[in-house]
Simulated assay, not measured.
Amino acid sequence: MKKIRYPALERKWYRCPKCGTKLAIFDNATKCNGLYIKCRTCKEEVEINI
């Protein structure tokens, strides 16, 4: 039996854990592991694990 994939129902911002700046927008169907983004405000490198 196949699983039914539902559309994205909720979108959220991923925020920097140090300063709270909005870095990326994602929805509830997102799976991310080991993505590194540099924060434009505090210049820290942040690993995203969703």
Rank of each mutant, 00 (worst) to 15 (best):
I37E: 08
R5F: 05
A24K: 14
I48Q: 06
M1S: 13
L23S: 07
K43S: 14
N33C: 07
K43T: 11
I48M: 08
I25W: 03
V46F: 01
Y6P: 00
C16S: 06
E45P: 01
T41S: 12
M1G: 14
I37G: 00
K38L: 12
K38S: 07
K31P: 03
C39P: 13
T21E: 15
I25D: 07
K43I: 02
T21L: 13
C39D: 07
A24F: 02
E44F: 02
C42P: 11
L23P: 00
A24L: 15
Y36N: 07
L23R: 01
F26G: 05
Y14Q: 10
W13C: 08
C19T: 01
G20I: 08
I50A: 11
M1W: 10
L35G: 02
K2Y: 06
I50L: 15
C32D: 05
P17W: 03
P7G: 08
I48A: 09
K12W: 03
I4V: 14
E44S: 12
K43N: 15
Y36H: 13
L35V: 15
W13E: 07
C16G: 03
N49F: 03
A8G: 15
I50T: 13
R15Q: 09
K18Y: 15
A8H: 04
P17C: 06
K3G: 01
C16L: 00
K2Q: 09
C19R: 01
P7D: 08
C19I: 02
L35Y: 11
K22S: 12
P17K: 01
C19S: 00
E10H: 14
K38F: 02
I50H: 02
K2F: 09
E47S: 07
K22E: 14
R11A: 13
G20P: 12
K12R: 15
N28I: 00
W13H: 11
K18R: 10
C39A: 07
D27L: 03
C32G: 07
C42A: 03
N33V: 07
K3I: 07
R11L: 11
I50C: 07
L23A: 09
G20K: 09
I4C: 02
N33A: 11
C39F: 05
K18P: 00
C16P: 01
C32M: 13
K2I: 02
K12Y: 12
L9W: 08
E45M: 12
K38Q: 14
K3R: 14
C19A: 05
N49A: 10
D27W: 01
Y6R: 10
M1C: 08
C16I: 09
L23Q: 09
F26A: 05
A8E: 15
C32F: 01
R40Q: 05
